[in-house]
Amino acid sequence: METDLKKNQCLTSHEDLIVYQKAFDVAMKIFELSKKFPIEERYSLTDQIRRSSRSVCANLAEAWRKRRYKAAFIAKLSDSEAEAAETQVWLKFAVNCHYVNIEQARELYSIYNQILSGLVKMINHPEQWLL
């Protein structure tokens, strides 16, 4: 997955990153799906999956602002990567608990694989992102 908009277009914000846009969109899908989770999951699975999916975006925003320092930039991208992987785990729980159907979960899981791929590319080639 490409992480920038277009090769000729200048990125001015973390919001211009395709990986961020995908993460934000999928976090909103998870939010909508999680509204249907049972009330007894409010303080466990519902909160956890919402928190981790949103943290992918938040950590990407922090990474963008830490581009002056390679180690800090990579650390925040790694945090984002970990949150994306955590969200995939919560998706599996949601399927096994019958809160989300398998087709919906596969679609979301696939999007997170794309996000993870983009994050790994950024982590492996930070020089093109650093200030």
Rank of each mutant, 00 (worst) to 15 (best):
V120P: 02
E83I: 02
L77N: 02
V100T: 05
W64C: 01
L116I: 09
Q88F: 10
E83N: 04
Y69K: 04
L91V: 05
W129M: 00
F73Q: 03
E107M: 09
N101I: 03
Q128A: 10
P126D: 08
E86K: 04
L116T: 02
S117C: 13
D79K: 08
S117W: 14
K76Q: 11
W64F: 15
I123D: 04
L108D: 05
N101M: 06
L116F: 09
S117E: 14
L77Y: 07
Y112G: 03
L131G: 06
E127K: 12
F73L: 04
R68A: 11
H125F: 14
A85L: 14
N124R: 15
A84W: 02
L119C: 01
N101P: 00
S117V: 09
K92P: 02
W90R: 03
A94R: 05
K92E: 15
I115Y: 09
Y109A: 01
L119G: 00
Q88N: 10
L91D: 08
Y99Q: 07
E81P: 00
Q88P: 01
I74Q: 02
V100P: 00
Y99W: 10
E127M: 10
A71Y: 13
S110L: 13
K92V: 07
A105M: 03
K66E: 10
I123H: 07
K92S: 10
I74F: 09
Q114E: 15
K70Y: 09
E83S: 05
H98S: 08
E86H: 04
E103F: 09
V89H: 11
K121T: 08
I74H: 03
N101E: 09
R68V: 08
G118D: 04
W90H: 15
A84R: 01
A71T: 14
Q104A: 10
E62W: 03
R67C: 02
A82I: 07
E86Q: 02
K121H: 12
I102A: 13
K70D: 08
W90A: 08
T87V: 03
Y109T: 03
L91G: 00
S80D: 05
R67Q: 06
H125V: 10
Y99V: 03
N124K: 15
A75V: 07
E83K: 03
A82Y: 08
R68N: 15
R68T: 12
L77C: 06
Y69H: 13
L130H: 05
M122F: 10
Q128H: 11
I115D: 07
Q88V: 08
N113H: 12
L131Y: 15
V89K: 08
A105L: 06
L108G: 04
Y99D: 03
E86S: 00
H98R: 12
M122L: 05
